[in-house]
Amino acid sequence: MSFISLLWVLLLGSLLGLELIGKVPPTLHTPLMSGANAISGITMLAALTLIVKAEGNVPLLIIGSVSLGFALFNVVGGFFVTDRMLAMFSRKPSNKK
């Protein structure tokens, strides 16, 4: 991938992010923040790449593995906690008599 096309990707990705959340009801600020936060754990892919390309370099394997751990902590925890919050909103109709 050439650097220029990566810059294009960066630009378009940012524009997409700006467009995606226009009107968010305040109710959803916390879950949205927490969900977006989980997505930022996508660096786990970078950590995976590091481990795969380490080729037996043990210190690098360890750094990659710790990095992967941190990222997955972010991802798994983030999605679970968001789901827990959102579950409280959707539970409402079934509970009403």
């Binding site: 991938m1 990566l6 990707v9 960066l10 630009l11 378009l12 990705g13 940012s14 524009l15 997409l16 992010g17 700006l18 995606l20 959340i21 968010v24 600020h29 949205l32 923040m33 977006a36 936060n37 997505i39 930022s40 996508i42 660096t43 892919l45 970078a46 790449t49």
Partner: peptide, 18 residues
Amino acid sequence: SQLLIVAGAMVGAAGLIL
């Protein structure tokens, strides 16, 4: 990784708006 760049940029921009 383009995927990382797109996802990161999306979260970065969306976070700024929020």
